[in-house]
Write a protein that binds this DNA or RNA. Sequence first.
DNA 1: TCAAGAGGTAATCGGATGATTACAAGATGG
DNA 2: CCATCTTGTAATCATCCGATTACCTCTTGA
Lengths: 217, 217
Amino acid sequence: MIRSAPSSSSVDDRLPASRIPAAERRELILDAATNVFGELGYAGATTDQVAKAAGISQPYVVRMFGSKENLFVEVMERTGDRILEVFRAAMADTDDPRPVSARIGAAYVDLIEDRGIMLSLMQGFMLGSDPRIGPVARAGFMRIYKALRDEGGFEPVQIREFLAEGMLINTLLATGITESLDEDADAIELLTCTFGDKLALVRDGLAGNPALISSKA
Amino acid sequence: MIRSAPSSSSVDDRLPASRIPAAERRELILDAATNVFGELGYAGATTDQVAKAAGISQPYVVRMFGSKENLFVEVMERTGDRILEVFRAAMADTDDPRPVSARIGAAYVDLIEDRGIMLSLMQGFMLGSDPRIGPVARAGFMRIYKALRDEGGFEPVQIREFLAEGMLINTLLATGITESLDEDADAIELLTCTFGDKLALVRDGLAGNPALISSKA
DNA sequence: TCAAGAGGTAATCGGATGATTACAAGATGG
DNA sequence: CCATCTTGTAATCATCCGATTACCTCTTGA
């Protein structure tokens, strides 16, 4: 989060952001929005929080995407793309000697290291009753289902079990149980049972992702 | 949703709500809030929507609970209580010849007939980063885990599988895939695989629960 | 019968927030 | 070198929404 070139050492921190191509800025905003929406939800997040996380001003966020709603929809479609990308890579990786199911499971855990991706998608899933976001959320979910079935060669039951475990993982992540487990033996038991030997990795992934959002302010 | 005594047949629908004891009104508000928060999420719902769903004025909602936040916390604790209640009843029902696991699974599906209960709790799970709601959400989740383990005699792995399937069901419910499945063969496949012969029951449960919330207005 | 309390609302306020407008400053090409 | 496009901001607007205030109307019991 480096703030352009700090000309003098103090005075005013609020110099204009460094000029970079719009396409590139767009990606930065989408990255920031993915994290902010993932933590706070669509309605709970503000465009100003996204802007600050991206290091630019609030009006720029709105102008680039037209509206907060458009931004969220793009975030959802983008996270859906990325997840499918990772799954497809895992399914195609025939060098890995493990069965496809194990490869995809590992891919899922890898995805979790970036909290925002799973959480922002999950936040979208919770908005089914929204007339604009709902259809996108449903399409995003079914798209993943279809890919696993048609490209992974899984039976519906296998996919259901896989998705179920994924939704549990997402929920545990969203509640923050993965972070507050100090001294709570029960939580550790559940998390160990869910993540197995990958638990440390999950926690490290989170630790490496410092609090981008200071809760509310 | 009967509006007190409709004195004359038209004129003004907005007579003051019927006078009932505060304790009773409280339950009505909590019921309404459970549905509204379940559909729209905490940040996405307004106290006015809750008030209208409960048939009273917005200031009354705020005054009875002190704040929107307090109301949501009460909704979460109440839904947690109800779910535990139903699970405990299922675990204790030794007349039912099925194994405990099957009884609890059936209990879960029964719970779903009231969309609001599962959805409002789920909406709470998504707010782990909120300083007030987060702890309540985590405690609520772990409370269910502990009850299943200590009172149901399950192994952690069984509980994880059960919870995972529950989170998938909640997510499918939240996206609205359970309602939009007309003509989408893939969605029907996934839902059939998830709910089995209970699918019709789930859909009927939803159909019997008419759109309490008109999307946004 | 008439305080006093309980149940309930209308009106309104103030802060938050998405959006708009107008403008500034760096790039770019002819 | 200067017109024009691109990248960006400050200021401000309009609206929504949670909360507060002041008030009204029933009920109750001494």
